[in-house]
Design a protein around this nucleic acid. Sequence first.
DNA 1: TAATGAGCTTACTTCAAGGTAAGGGGATGA
DNA 2: TCATCCCCTTACCTTGAAGTAAGCTCATTA
Lengths: 103, 103
Amino acid sequence: MIHQLECPVETIIHVLGGKWKPMILWQLIQSNKRFNDLEKLIPDVSQKMLSQHLRDLEREGIINRTVYPTVPPKVEYSLSEYGQTLIPVAEVMCAWGENHNKR
Amino acid sequence: MIHQLECPVETIIHVLGGKWKPMILWQLIQSNKRFNDLEKLIPDVSQKMLSQHLRDLEREGIINRTVYPTVPPKVEYSLSEYGQTLIPVAEVMCAWGENHNKR
DNA sequence: TAATGAGCTTACTTCAAGGTAAGGGGATGA
DNA sequence: TCATCCCCTTACCTTGAAGTAAGCTCATTA
């Protein structure tokens, strides 16, 4: 429902608004991924931006970061339970975006 | 459906991603508005950004711009028929954003 | 005569997002 | 002993989005 002056549409745009965040999210919706995996799957992202965006998404509670104290260290990122609630929203946004791109 | 490498989530974020665009859209969903109305309803927006974002939204086909050749000129902005398709999407985004803000 | 009002546009400045490149920690393999 | 691997972090620079302020058009009003 849209009923405030500060429309919460801005909230979700802020949460997903980084240059690589939709892509990261999409990858993690498919399956859990390690840092290195994401680097390969998103070829143009820099390490800096990848880790920064991952930290942002973690801070928002959307993804989980699991560190396995192996050597060399292994860090796995996954969609949190809360992050799952984004999936239907992302699908609606995607559907509109897809249609829009056809015009 | 999420099924491309270039996720169209980015599209809608791009379309709505200007600082004032969600707010402008929200106002035009309520009712048609003139430039001056929007300036008053969105107190912190500058004229430059308002006209720029309005032009962006018009170029995307989301809003209509109607000029009445009176003196002084009157320009009315309204949601286009295509823009109406954004309403349900915006509502879903809003609902998620609202819930997210509670955390 | 000058000011007003609506709806902009233009020139200049500021600031944050993002890019580039280098380094670091710490156990392991050669 | 040196390099390697993974997952970052830091310092520095570039770019583009947004803010500020001024001006413009043209008929009406004071």
